[in-house]
Design a protein around this nucleic acid. Structure first.
Lengths: 181, 181
DNA sequence: TCCCTCATGTAAGTAGTTACATGATTTC
DNA sequence: GAAATCATGTAACTACTTACATGAGGGA
């Protein structure tokens, strides 16, 4: 996960490990965390694989290491970006990928969002089926709070679907949280 | 994480590792996953700590191992249930705990949900602040999709808050996903 | 001068997953 | 008698986190 994020962030500009950490914290960091204990080893690993270049630039009395994505790195990144989402972490995966969608041509974005929608719709259908089964067995009366988490899932999944439909049309974001339809 | 879930599930009835896995898949499994490669070692570990008892019951030609929470196990479980949520995985943590809230007296539930609300409200405020900053710098025009993930976060956080307020009053769940207020 | 931010790294530990390995029981 | 499900376990690996460790640069 973090390796792909790193490449994605260094495609357009060379960054130090420290820069990358800051960028993650202020951007994608709302859902992806990167301790520097995972970041620095990942930079080494990616450089070793040929997915990043590293340039040492002396700044006064110290040396800063600037990393940038190579062609091979970009390829690996795009492969990840356009590959199916991890079914064990759908939301995290969709968000992480959409975060970088400006790097894709519009037709490809539309196509990917379409597959996400289908995927999320299936999850929603599964939730709805579970809900109907629980309603029939009056599970709610026996275990209100256990059942309540299913309803959270239902709501969150509906929210994800609504968001996907919204961004597919690149509708103005400032209106997203107000709109009711 | 999985250790607390295991204790929580074996408080009211003895279960085999296999049973526990099934229970997770059909209940809390909407957001918690347990591979049996993590489950069986956890059962051993918990038994070693004195948090579970294990009883071998021969069933025909094979022996089934039934695990159940001990008093010490219940204590450790309740300590987890009532401790602050992990800030690095708030949603997962809140859901995992609420799943077991039937095991708590109502006043304690109310109190815990109250602290969750405050916590989530703070996250929501942080999102709103970010949104205002981005709106001012016209970030959306530069990076529509990167910005869109912030709006997903805003919506999801609002949804969590609405859900918490709803279940605090133990309002009927079947109406939760329809209601608009 | 002190503290905060910038800046890079390693070591030990945590919490899992995936794949390997085996065998009983039930259902068709 | 074959296939699905029940049932338990280990080994190697993955992807982290937390704590340790160090030091430069800038601002009050």
């Amino acid at each position: 996960m973090i390796e792909h994020i790193i490449i994605g962030l260094t495609i357009h500009e060379p960054l130090t490990g420290y820069d990358i950490k800051k960028k993650i914290e202020t951007g994608i960091g709302n859902f992806v965390k990167a301790s520097h204990g995972s970041l620095y080893p990942a930079l080494k690993k990616l450089t070793g694989k040929g997915f990043l270049t590293m340039e040492e630039l002396p700044q006064g009395n110290r040396i800063k290491k600037y990393y940038q994505a190579t062609e091979a790195g970009k390829e690996a990144f795009l492969e990840w970006l356009t590959s199916p989402v991890d079914p064990n972490a759908v939301t995290l995966n969709v968000l992480s990928k959409v975060f970088f969608f400006n790097d894709l041509p519009d037709d490809q974005r539309q196509q990917l969002i379409q597959t996400y929608e289908l995927h999320i719709q299936q999850i929603l259908d599964a939730y709805k089926k579970m809900e109907q089964e629980l309603t029939m067995t009056k599970e709610e009366e026996k275990d209100y709070y256990g059942t309540s988490t299913l309803y959270y899932g239902l709501q969150a999944t509906q929210g994800m679907l609504r968001w996907l439909k919204y961004i597919k049309g690149q509708k103005p974001l400032t209106e997203f949280i107000k709109e009711e339809d």
